[in-house]
Amino acid sequence: METIKGIHHIAIICSDYQTSKKFYTEVLGLKVVKETYRKERMSYKLDLSLNGTYVVELFSFPDPPSRLSRPEACGLRHLAFSVGDLKLAVQELAAKGVEVEPMRTDENTGKKFAFFSDPDGLPIEIYEC
């Protein structure tokens, strides 16, 4: 489709807003653009940026249902971030208490990658570019 110019945002629903806000800002280093409390929905919406370009929208809702299976449930499979040095990224995450799965190699590109989870178990990939 020629009219698509890029990804506008990625939306994530979390079960514990404060825990997820801390994870995405303090652990992953995303910057807060805007935080809104939507009283009628009893919900927060937190707009986050990565390098001033990408937007992750973090939502909270009262009692959201859990993801049924991981990672092969129908729908979004995972969120992937590119990194320059995978070993360094893994070390930084580990220093912040994040458990990262063993590094793997993409059989199609030869690039290294690894997975970890956000506080709700959403699979997140770091991919060495």
Rank of each mutant, 00 (worst) to 15 (best):
E2C: 09
R67E: 09
I10L: 08
L86A: 04
T36I: 11
P102F: 01
E107Y: 04
M42P: 04
G52R: 08
G97L: 12
V27W: 04
S66V: 03
E101Y: 02
T53Q: 13
L58C: 02
L76M: 09
F81V: 00
R67H: 08
M42L: 14
I12M: 03
K39A: 12
R70Y: 11
L46D: 09
V55P: 00
G121M: 12
K111Y: 00
G121L: 14
R77Y: 03
P123V: 11
G75Q: 05
G52K: 03
A89F: 01
D63H: 08
S60T: 00
D120Q: 10
M103C: 10
L68V: 12
Q91H: 07
C14D: 12
T109S: 06
E128C: 07
S82D: 11
Y17S: 14
M103W: 01
K111W: 02
F116M: 06
V33F: 15
L48T: 01
V98A: 10
L50G: 13
D120W: 00
V56S: 11
L88Q: 06
G97V: 07
F113R: 12
K87H: 02
S117W: 15
V98I: 07
P102A: 15
V33C: 09
F59Q: 09
G110K: 06
S66F: 09
I12C: 12
K96P: 01
R77H: 04
L50W: 08
A89N: 02
L50A: 11
T3Y: 12
L50N: 10
P65R: 03
F113H: 10
F23K: 13
L122W: 15
F23C: 09
S49M: 07
Q91Y: 02
E72N: 14
H9C: 07
T19D: 15
A89L: 05
F81P: 00
E128G: 06
S60I: 00
L30C: 13
R41Y: 11
A80I: 02
I13A: 15
L122H: 08
G121F: 11
R38Y: 13
T105R: 10
E72Q: 12
P102I: 07
S15T: 07
D118Q: 10
G52P: 01
P64Q: 10
G52A: 05
G52C: 03
T105P: 00
G110H: 02
L50R: 12
F59M: 10
G6F: 00
K5E: 01
I10S: 10
E101A: 14
C74M: 15
K96V: 12
E125S: 04
V27D: 10
S82I: 04
E125I: 03
A73F: 08
